[in-house]
Amino acid sequence: MSPRHAKPRFTLNRKTLAGVIAGTATAGAAAITVASAGPALSAQIPGATHQAAHHVAQIPNPGMGRAIQTNALRDDPRVKTRALAAPQKQVQKRLPSATDVLKLAVSQVGTTENAAGGSKFNQWFMGTPYAARGVAENGGSVGDYANASWCDMFVSWVGDQLGVKGMGADAFTPAHAKWFISQGRWGNAPKPGAVVFFSWNGGGVDGIDHVGLVIKDNHDGTIQTVEGNTDDAVKIRTRSTSSVVGYGYPEYAQ
């Protein structure tokens, strides 16, 4: 267990933190089917590089000339029966895959916290609506997040950077796990890209101490993970499944 996890998470109390938002990073919470991260992901890990969100170029709207002509035709009584151009389809940005998420997470390996115990993930979280709404509902201040334990802020950051649906976002691990449960995105299978919740001393969901992302199931009673705030840094770990409370499943591309 990271020394940071032995400390209080915030100056706020646990009851206060339970109100921190467990809303989605960028989208709603529809039922999902989780896809695997694809073949031989672990072989890609040592040389993994940062992969930004996949942006699909938007097809521009028809040129002004066509728009003006269409309007003119609509108003011309001689061509009232002429079919107008069909509405243009919207181009949808594809969902990130579990592989996308793990590549980004692994690209952060080696990131450490500052001398005060915070990190770039704390700074990011403080500027999000999740922090602001938690303070509005439960008191305290956004500054309380500055040097708090940041394992869940790391997971939330990864989901937010790639626009992952159904990832949720929180700074308090039990609240995040309960959100996955409430959305029907909870289970016991260590699928690649799943959000894994740990309790070092038991206690079920309310006893959750730590969170990370599953890289792979080792099929020997352990899983490989990438985690924030483990020994005060982002690291790849091998964890016993005996410490796992459960897994949250974001919505990934098929």
Rank of each mutant, 00 (worst) to 15 (best):
T11R: 10
T11K: 09
L12Q: 10
L12W: 04
L12M: 15
L12D: 05
N13Y: 01
R14Y: 00
L17S: 04
L17C: 12
I21V: 09
G23W: 07
G23E: 11
T24M: 05
T24G: 15
A25I: 07
T26F: 14
V34F: 01
S36V: 02
G38D: 04
G38S: 08
P39R: 02
P39C: 02
A40V: 01
A40M: 07
Q44L: 15
P46C: 13
G47I: 01
H50Y: 14
H50R: 14
Q51L: 06
A53M: 11
H55T: 12
V56E: 09
A57N: 08
A57Q: 08
A57D: 04
Q58F: 15
N61A: 13
P62W: 00
M64D: 15
M64G: 13
M64E: 14
M64N: 13
A67Q: 15
I68T: 11
Q69A: 15
T70P: 00
N71H: 14
A72V: 10
L73C: 06
D76E: 05
P77Q: 06
P77S: 08
P77F: 02
K80T: 10
K80S: 11
A83M: 09
A83P: 00
L84N: 04
A85F: 03
Q90T: 12
V91K: 03
V91S: 07
Q92N: 12
Q92C: 03
K93W: 13
R94N: 06
R94D: 11
P96F: 00
D100S: 04
K103F: 05
K103V: 04
L104E: 03
V106K: 00
S107H: 06
S107T: 08
V109R: 06
T112I: 10
E113F: 00
E113A: 13
N114D: 15
G117W: 00
G118T: 12
S119Y: 08
S119G: 10
F121L: 11
F121E: 06
F121V: 11
M126P: 04
T128S: 09
T128F: 03
T128V: 08
A131M: 01
A132F: 04
R133V: 10
V135S: 05
E137N: 05
